[in-house]
Structures are given as C-alpha cells and as structure tokens.
C-alpha cells in the first residue's frame, strides 16, 4: 500500500479506533460518514477491545505474491465485544485449531511490506487467547 492510503488508515489500523452511532448506538469499524444501520451521521469516538471471537475462518494456502512467505496462514472474521467485525489474520497458532468461537487477543504486527524497499505496513493480527 502506498504511503498516503496507509497514513490515512493509521487511526483504525494502529489504534483500532472505531465510532459509535449517536442515534442507533451501533459500533462501526472503521469510521465512515453514514451509519450503515440507521443512516445517522452523528458519531462518538469508540475504541475496540483487543479481544474477540472467531466468526468464521480459513487457512490460506495460495496467497498473493505479497503474502507468499506467510502462507499458509489463518484468515478469520473476528467479532469484538463491541459488536464490530474485522477480517484479520490469526498468527502464532496451530493452523487447524482456529474455528468459530475461538477466543482471540489482538496483537500488533507487521501486516505487509511494499516489496523490499517500500514502506512497512502495521496493524493487528489475532492470536489465540490463553
């Protein structure tokens, strides 16, 4: 990801900043202008817990070139206690121990690199809790 787009995403990617809709109270991650639930446009800041539960997961064996060195890796849809859902890799785990309901913590990781000389992109991955 080139610098400008990565830079814009820093609040959500590096700090898990989300927003809570002032009218319907749903937590939306990352922030957006119009609430997908009620079309509200007033927001309060919210921060996601660094914990969650796997909704559904897979083990990716055939990866894009940028992720080739990481394969096989677990990719999962994670729901946080605030009700927000994020798609994240699950790292530091046995590949087949992850499934619906697996409790996870979110840890700060390097997510991708733009080749050998481009910027390094950070964010969160999930790791099995406990």
């Amino acid at each position: 990801m080139p610098s400008p787009g990565y830079w814009r995403g820093i609040p959500s990617r590096l700090r898990l900043e989300a927003v809570r809709c002032s009218s319907c109270e749903n937590v939306v991650y990352p922030s957006r202008r119009i609430c997908p639930h009620c079309h509200g446009t007033k927001w309060e800041p919210a921060e996601l817990s660094r914990t969650g539960e796997v909704v559904t997961s897979t083990v990716v064996h055939v990866a894009p070139d940028d992720f080739a060195m990481e394969a096989p890796y677990v990719l999962a849809l994670i729901e946080t206690p605030e009700g927000a859902r994020l798609m994240l890799q699950v790292t530091d785990c046995e590949l087949n121990e992850i499934g619906p309901g697996t409790a996870v913590n979110l840890e700060f990781r390097r997510i991708r690199a733009e080749g050998n000389s481009g910027i390094l992109c950070y964010g969160f991955k999930a790791v099995p809790a406990g």
Partner: peptide, 20 residues
C-alpha cells in the same frame, strides 16, 4: 482496506463463506 490489506484472497473469502 479491510480485506485485501490483511491477505484476503477470493478463494479465502469463499472459504470463509463455506466454513460459515
């Protein structure tokens, strides 16, 4: 921003659908 950034591929997205 939310899927491909984290290494999602199309087979992976449909695999998530399949597991669900």
């Amino acid at each position: 921003e939310l899927e491909a950034y984290h290494g999602a591929t199309f087979p992976a997205l449909y695999a998530l659908i399949a597991r669900a």
